[in-house]
Each structure stands twice: as structure tokens, then as C-alpha cells.
Write a protein that binds this DNA or RNA. Sequence first.
RNA 1: GCGCUUGUAGCUCAGUGGAUAGAGCGAAAGGUUGCGGACCUUUAGGCCGGGGGUUCGAGUCCCUCCAAGCGCGCCA
Length: 580
Amino acid sequence: MLREQIESLISIKLKPLLDEWGVTDTKIELSPTPSPSMGDYALNTALRLAKAAKMPPIKIAERMAGLIEDECFSKIEVLNPGYVNLTLSQKAINDSLINMSKCALGLQEDSVYERVVIDYSGVNIAKQLHVGHLRSTIIGDAISRVLESQGKTVIRQNHLGDWGLPIAMVLWKAQPVLREIEQKSLNIEDELTLAELEEIYRDSAAACKDDQSNREQCQLILVALQNGDKQLLDDWHTITQVSMSEVYRLYDVLGVKLKETDERGESFYRDMLQDTIDALIQCNAVKESDGALCVFMDQFKAKDGSVLPVIVQKSDGGFNYETFDLAAIRYRINELKADRIIYVTDSRQILHFEQIFAIADLCGWSDNVKLEHVAFGSVLGEDNKPLKTRSGENIKLADLMQEAIERAYSVVNEKNQSLSEERKQEVARMVGIGAVKYADLSHERIKDYVFAWDRMLALDGNTGPYLQYAHARICSIFRKGDIDENTIDGPVILEEIIERILALKLLEFSRAVKSVEKELRPHLLCTYLYELADVFTRFYDQCPVLNSEFRDSRLFLCKMTRQVLAAGLDMLGIDALSEM
RNA sequence: GCGCUUGUAGCUCAGUGGAUAGAGCGAAAGGUUGCGGACCUUUAGGCCGGGGGUUCGAGUCCCUCCAAGCGCGCCA
């Protein structure tokens, strides 16, 4: 928060000079210096202005340094080839830290009202969650939390796969099972699990693969379902219910905030599909081709170099996933009044969303709406191939989480035997789940990342447990000293260099959060938190807190660090621990 | 064939056009009559895939080549 304030301060002070040279578009930006001995922040504007000002950068820097003079700097230094390096006064840092502690860590400063629709997780009915769903769910949830922390109105949407051919396949083979359960008046939840539904789906898919008549039968079931067949609809409801109750159990373990009221599956749009096609026709966007309705846009090329069609209605009259997504985009703009719509899906769908967004733009639907595809890469095994079980199947999310908790338990059990058994299990859950989430979120999302238990559960390096450990140590200080954090409120005295580094790092929190809000890349926040935890542990190592003449100041630094770590971890959907 | 994404230390990864490219792991050497050693401090280790270009300045922007992954008409 302080850095931005100084930037605007300098901006005002330098305006006359920039006006003199007729420069209007140069933004004043400060960057941290390479080393604390060179001051806190560096201004490189002089380097950029050399041409416009027709002066050597070093001369410009000298003129700037004279104008910048202010009580919040204790030192202003001009360095070759034209940097103006600034050292902040203790008072400026202290005032900012105190302000930060009083104003929600500086998170909602100059926040603009915005309605953000975010589409993530997107589970399929009658299929268990597997590792492929992990990233969308975790990344989407983290982004949602970050946006909420910035005061945005966030509308979560779980775009369930619940209205396509796979559902018909399940219904086909599930019907006899469901009838039997009914006849015996048994409780559906006790008799049918999601795993069994998935088994049924697999049988059915296999039966359809090589047999055209089976396939046609499923097509007929799909049409009947979509036309409102009572029995099929009842069965569909049952299957959805069985599926989602298992999904919510997992969301709960994961700490994911999606709720039933966020469910907007494909089925939700079933009565809007024809309207969507009509709207496209009205925009003159569609052409008939080989019996299907298509949108042709020049920027998309097919294999043979011709223009690639986007099929919005199949030749049999049915709708496909482009139709669902187009209906959804209209709903989100017209009904949900979105200013920004975010889709969190894997990178294989990049082309799909480019097409959908292009169509929305072509029809003028999204003129005042920002559409963004948050694409992410695959989770790889240690062999650098997509993560699978030994037998080559997708790894179930439930199994993955179970293993994370078990592995965390054995670490906790080894490292901290003073905890009660109950507490160990609780800690294992928070550490295990946190480690998996952090490993995912801390990597640049567009890249594939390698899933390695040993690395993510390590207590050092850029890991979830390392951050949780830093937090736990701070809590331990307050416990040991029997101090209530609320009674600590500065001022801060920066005696050691590491304390200054820590204070300045704390002040960068809101900037890190803003960068995630803007770029939708959660790893930026992870990197920040890791750097903060790293600086803190060095401070912890070098500076005694409880037995120190600077006790109150250092307790204040501890308190601020703890609050930032806790707030940051919360945005990532990770629990902060008081002991571990 | 066309398109998208990626290529940074032995490994896993950071790196808003700015100063000497940084972490962790692994390797080598140290540190506790102190608040949690699940930690910290040193050292070694790099033609930032290759080659051109733009710029006062390029890991970062542009072009081109190479390699890997993914996608490209009626599955979602």
C-alpha cells in the first residue's frame, strides 16, 4: 500500500517536469532495489525519458531527485546510469503499518464495485471426481476468495455436465437397478453409490462403443429425457442427487465453498437453447452446413485451410456444448448482470472459449463485459506423464485427499508428539489438504506441474506446510508470552535490517492480492506469502522478541505477519494453524 | 498441414523491458545455556532451447528455426 502512495506522490511532484518535456504517458513506477544497501525503492523514470527530454538520464535523475524531496524519505540517491533510489523514513513505514493494521490490511482500498461470475469445478454427473477436477476446483475457489477480499460481488457457478449423452448412457443401464431398489422400498442413498453409478456408465459406454444399436438406444433416451419424460426425469434427479451428495462431501473435505445454490448445470439452460439459436439467427451469425447450424468466423481455420465452423445446432436438431455455453453466457450477462465472467477450465479448451467469446462479441452480447478464460495445464506424475494410477486409470480425488491426510499424519506424528491424538488428526487434515492445494496454486497455472508428495509435504521451500509453520511459530510466541494480539498496536522501531525488510514486505500485501485480482494467477500470491514467511523466519532467527528491549515493536511485526499469512492462506483456501 | 501452450542450475520451480538472473531439493561446510532445529547461515552449480532483430537496456517484446505437450464439424 505504501509503494502505491509514494508512486502517486512522486507523480504529482514530477508533473511540472514531465509537462515541460511534453511527456504525458509515462507511468511513475517504483521497483524494489536489488539490495537494501541501495535504499528501499528505485525510480527508473529518468532512463525512459532520456529521449523525450534530450538529456542524459543521469542529469534527469538529478533534477528529479531535487523535486522529489519529501519528509517520507530519509535518503534520496542518484545512481548510474540514471536511477533515483529512495530510502523511506522510519516514520513513513511506521505510519503505513499502523494504517494497514487499522484498515483491513489495506485490502479494499480504492475497490470498484463489480459483479463477477466465476465458472469452476464443472463436475460431471455419475462420475467420481478425479485428479482432473482438482485444478479447476482449487484455482476457481482461490480466485473467488481473492475477488471477495477485494470487495467484489462474486457469483459462483458450477456448470455441471448433466444433460448430455453420457447421462443417457447411465440412465439406460441404471433403470433396472433403480426399479429394483424401488420395488424393495430401499433407501436410495444406502443402495447406490457414486462409484457404482460410474461403473454403470463405464459398462454402458463400452456397450455403445462397438454397437450402433445400443448407441441409438441411448440417443433415444436422451431425446426422451430432453422432451420431459416423467420416469426418466425422476431417475435423472435420483442420479444427480446421488452424485452431488458425494461431491459435496469432497468439497467439504477440500474446504471448497461451492453450494447447491451455485449449481447451474447444462440442464439449467435446457429451455434457453432454442432462444439462443434464435438470437444467433437474428444477429445473422449462423449458416446451415451439412444439415448443421454453424457460425463461421474468418479467424478460425480448419485443417484444410478453409474457415472452421462452430456448430451450434447439430444436424439431428440436438444441441451441443457450444450451445450450452452460449446460453450460459447470455444468462450470465442478462440475468446475473455480470461485469466480468471467468471460466476456469483446462487449457485444451482454449480454442472452444475463443470461439464462444468471439461469437458473443460478434453478436454484441458482451460489449460491456470482460470475458476471461483462466486456462491451466495438466497434473503430471513423476514420470512427466499425466498423473494416473499404476493400472492407468485416473486417480480419484477422494483417494488423493485420503493419502494426503495419511502422509501428513505420519509427518505430524513424527515431528510433534506432544499433540493429542485428536489434535494430530485435525492438524494432519489441515496440513495434508493445504499441501495439495498449495502445490497446485503455487505453480504458474498455464503450465503442467509435477505432482510429488515428498516435495509438497516438505517443511521447507515454497510449500503449504512452510507457511503454516511460520504462522504456528508466531502463535507460539503469543502463547508463550501470554499476550493478547489485540493489545499490540505499534509503533514499530526498525532496529535491524531484517526488520526493515519484513516491514516493507508486509506493506506489499495488498499489491500482491491486487495482482491476482487483475491477472487471475494465484501463484503470485503464493510467491508473495512464501517470501514473507521466508523473511519472517530470518527475522525470527536473528531477533529475539519476548526478551528484547524492542519487545512491543517486534510483537507488532509478529502480529502483522500472522494476520497477513492468515488472510493470504484463507484466500488460497488453506487453514492457518496455531500449532502443528 | 494449421493453431495454441511450454522450453531458465543435476531435479522441481520463481523472475511487472531495468542494476550482479533468484528460491527450494540434492551436494559440500557451519550454527541451539534464547520465543518451536518442521529452522537458519555460507559455498559450489547458468551461452535463460538455437539464431536473428527492436531498444540506451532483452530471460522478458518481434521474427525465424528446433524440441515437447495439447487442439483442429456435429463428444462434453
